[in-house]
Design a protein around this nucleic acid. Structure first.
Lengths: 164, 164
DNA sequence: GCAACCTTGTCAGGCGTCCTGACAAGGTGA
DNA sequence: TCACCTTGTCAGGACGCCTGACAAGGTTGC
C-alpha cells in the first residue's frame, strides 16, 4: 500500500523521491563527518575525494567525470590544497598538466569518509531491511554503469587504460 | 556481481548512486519539458509545482515543506507570477497572508509535468524491469514518509488539517 | 481595551557554487 | 616550421539560496 496507489495527487516523481533519500542519507553522513577531525570538508569537495586515488588525476579528467567545468574543479582543488588535503604535482609525461593527488591527510579523510558512508548504509540496512537496501544498491549500480559510465571509477579507469 | 563486490575502490557511496540515478532521470524529464510549450520552467520552480494545488498554499507552508527560506520561495514565486504560471490571492482568513496558487496555465504545466515524469518512469520500468522499479518506488516512499514526512504531500496535508 | 508578543511576507545585501569567455604555456601532426 | 589542439588559469557573471531587518497584521494575557 504505497501512497501513490491510494492518492494520485500525493504521487511524488521518482527523481524527487531519490533526492529525498539521498539528502537524508547524506545528512547522516555530514553530521558524523562534522564532528570528526575532518569537519572542514564541505560537500563540494566530494568530487575530488570521489575520483582521485593513487597516483593522482588531471584536473580535466576530474572535471569530465564529475560533469563540471575545469574552472569549477580548479577552485575546489585550490581550496583543498589550502586546507592541506590535496596537492598538485607536475605530470612527468606532460609539462602542461598537473596531477592532483591527496596528501596523507587527504587519504585519511577519504578513508574516513568511506567508512562513514558504509556505516550509514549499514544503519539503513537495519532500518529498512538488508535485502531491500542490497537490491537498491544493485539496481543503482546498474543504472549508474549504464547512464553515466564515466562517473563509475572502475569503468572510467578501464577507459583510461585500454591497453595496460 | 556488483562492482562493489569485486573492487572496493570502485565502491560508490549510496547518496552518490542515488544522485546519479536522480540526475539521469531528471535529465530525461528536462529534455522533454524543454521542447514543450513550458520550456521556460526551470528546475527551481519545482518546489511550487510540487506542493501547490487546489486552493493554494501560503509562502510559509511551501517554504517549510521544501525546506527553504521564505525569501527564496518568494523569489521563485515572483518569477512564476511574471511568467504567468502562478498568482497570489489574499487569504480571506488572514490579511497578512497571500495564497499562492496556479493559474490555468500553471495547472496545465503541472499536469504536463506529472505526465512527463510518469512517462520517464515507465521507460525506466521497461529498461530495468517493472518489478524492480516498483520495488524502488515503494522503498523510497517508505523512506520519504519516515525521514522527511513534511515533504510528502499526503502527510503534510493530514498534518495541516488535524481535525477536518 | 491594550500592551507584549508572534507570524507573514518583503526589501536589502551577501555567500557559495558553478558557469562562459579569453588566454598563455605546452604538446602534436602535416 | 606552422597550424592546431589541449591543459590549466584569470576575470567576470548568473543563479540559487542564505541571514538580518522590517512593516503590517494576528494573538494572548492582563
Amino acid at each position: 500500500m504505497t501512497s501513490s496507489s491510494k492518492n494520485p495527487s500525493a504521487w511524488i516523481p521518482l527523481p524527487g523521491l531519490l533526492d529525498i533519500a539521498s539528502d537524508a542519507l547524506f545528512a547522516e553522513f555530514r553530521a558524523e563527518l562534522e564532528q570528526s577531525e575532518f569537519g572542514d570538508i564541505r560537500p563540494t569537495h566530494g568530487c575530488v575525494f570521489r575520483f582521485v586515488q593513487g597516483h593522482g588525476l588531471r584536473l580535466t579528467d576530474i572535471a569530465e567525470r564529475a560533469n563540471m567545468t575545469k574552472q569549477s574543479v580548479g577552485e575546489i582543488v585550490d581550496d583543498l590544497v589550502d586546507r592541506g588535503y590535496a596537492k598538485r604535482i607536475p605530470d612527468p609525461d606532460d609539462k602542461r598538466a598537473k596531477l592532483i593527488c591527496l596528501t596523507e591527510r587527504g587519504e585519511s579523510a577519504q578513508a574516513h569518509g568511506r567508512k562513514l558512508f558504509a556505516r550509514v548504509e549499514k544503519r539503513w540496512a537495519e532500518r529498512y531491511g538488508a535485502e531491500r537496501i542490497a537490491a537498491l544498491r544493485e539496481l543503482l549500480e546498474e543504472i549508474a554503469a549504464r547512464e553515466v559510465p564515466f562517473a563509475v571509477p572502475e569503468i572510467a579507469q578501464a577507459a583510461l587504460k585500454p591497453v595496460a
